[in-house]
C-alpha cells in the first residue's frame, strides 16, 4: 500500500527502530543492498534549491541500484506555467516509483502525497518539516550514544525558526529520561507552543539559558544551529550576540569527553573550523548517516507500496 512520510511523527518508534536497523545493516553490508531498487526510479522534485539534500537522496537511490529522475529547478518549469502541486505529483506518478520533494510552501508535501499514486517523501516544506534530516540526526545519536534515552540534549542557536530543532525535540520527546537544555538569545527562544505542547505536556524537564558555556558541562549531545542575521531587528543586536553562539575549542573546555556535536549544515561560522578535528565533532558523520537513513526509508516505502 502506498504510504508517504511528511512528518517525523508519521513514523512510529517501532518503525524508526526498523529504519535504524536497516541503515545499520546497509553500513555493514552495502553489497547486500546494491541492487535492492534495481528497475525503480526516484524523482527528486526540488522547487527551491537544496543541493545537499537532493544529492543525498540521489546518492541513496544510486547506491540501492535504482535510477534517478531529477528536476533541479521545478519552480522555473511546471510551477511557473501555473501547474498546481497536485497536478505535478499526478504527472510524476506516471514516470517514477517514488518522489522526494522540497517546496517553499508549508504543507506542499502533504498536498503532493494526497494527489500522487506513489509514495512521497518530504524533503523539506518551507519552515514546517524536514523528516529525513531528523532521521539523519537520530542515526547519528544512536551510533554515537548507543541509545535514545537518558540523554541531556543541548540545542543551541536559532530555536525559534529552526525546523530541524522542533522535529528533533518531537522525536526525542518520545523516549524516556531525556532532558533538554535550550540555549539561545532571548530573540530566538523556542516557541512557547513547542515548550507547552511537547515538553510540558509530557512532563519532560528542560531549562533555558543564554550561555552556551554554562550549559556545556552537562551535555551529552549538542545540536548547533545558525544564528541568522536576518532574524534580528537591528544589526547591533546581531553583532552583540553572534559570537556567543559560535562553538570553538575554548567553549569545549568543560565539555564531556563523549559529547556528540551535531549541526544540520550548511555551517557558516557557528562552529569554528578548529573543532572539525575534534573526535566529538559529528556533523560530517551526520551527512553520511542522512544518506543511509534515506536509503532505508526509500527501501521501506517502495516495499510497502509493492504489497
Amino acid at each position: 500500500m502506498k504510504r508517504s512520510v511528511i512528518d517525523i511523527l508519521d513514523l512510529t518508534p517501532a518503525e524508526l527502530e526498523e529504519l535504524l536497523a536497516t541503515a545499520l545493516d546497509i553500513i555493514d553490508n552495502p553489497e547486500k543492498y546494491a541492487h535492492a531498487c534495481a528497475g525503480k526510479k526516484l524523482a527528486t522534485l526540488f522547487f527551491e534549491p537544496s543541493t545537499r539534500t537532493r544529492l543525498s537522496f540521489e546518492a541513496a537511490m544510486h547506491e540501492l541500484g535504482g535510477a534517478v529522475l531529477s528536476v533541479t529547478d521545478a519552480a522555473s518549469s511546471s510551477a511557473s506555467k501555473g501547474e498546481s502541486v497536485s497536478d505535478t505529483a499526478k504527472v510524476v506518478s506516471c514516470y517514477a516509483d517514488i518522489i522526494a520533494m522540497r517546496h517553499p510552501k508549508e504543507g506542499a508535501a502533504l498536498v503532493a502525497a494526497r494527489a500522487a499514486s506513489i509514495p512521497v517523501i518530504n524533503a523539506g516544506d518551507g519552515g514546517h518539516c524536514h523528516p529525513t534530516q531528523t532521521l539523519a540526526d537520530l542515526l547519528t545519536i544512536r551510533r554515537q550514544k548507543g541509545a535514545f534515552s537518558g540523554l541531556t540534549i543541548g540545542l543551541c542557536g536559532d530555536l525559534k525558526f529552526g525546523r530541524t530543532v522542533h522535529s528533533l525535540i518531537n522525536a526525542m520527546a518520545r523516549y524516556e529520561n531525556n532532558r533538554f537544555v535550550l540555549i539561545s538569545p532571548d530573540e530566538l527562544k523556542l516557541p512557547s507552543y513547542v515548550k507547552k505542547d511537547v515538553l510540558a505536556e509530557r512532563g519532560i524537564p528542560y531549562e533555558q539559558t543564554t550561555s552556551l558555556e554554562d550549559a556545556m558541562p552537562q551535555l551529552d549531545v549538542l545540536y548547533m544551529t545558525r544564528v541568522q542575521k536576518e532574524r534580528f531587528f537591528n544589526e547591533e543586536d546581531y553583532l552583540r550576540l553572534k559570537d556567543s553562539y559560535i562553538l570553538d575549542m575554548a567553549k569545549l573546555k568543560n565539555a564531556k569527553d563523549d559529547l556528540c556535536i551535531m549541526h544540520p549544515l550548511p555551517r557558516v561560522n557557528e562552529i569554528a573550523v578548529e573543532v572539525d578535528d575534534d573526535p566529538r565533532a559529528c556533523y560530517f558523520k551526520q551527512v553520511l548517516n542522512g544518506k543511509y537513513m534515506r536509503m532505508a526509508l526509500i527501501l521501506k516505502l517502495l516495499k510497502e507500496a509493492a504489497q
Binding site: S86, K105, G127
Partner: peptide, 10 residues
C-alpha cells in the same frame, strides 16, 4: 506561507 495560499482547488 501555507500551500493553501497558492494551490488551486484545495
Amino acid at each position: 506561507r501555507c500551500i493553501t495560499s497558492t494551490e488551486r482547488a484545495i
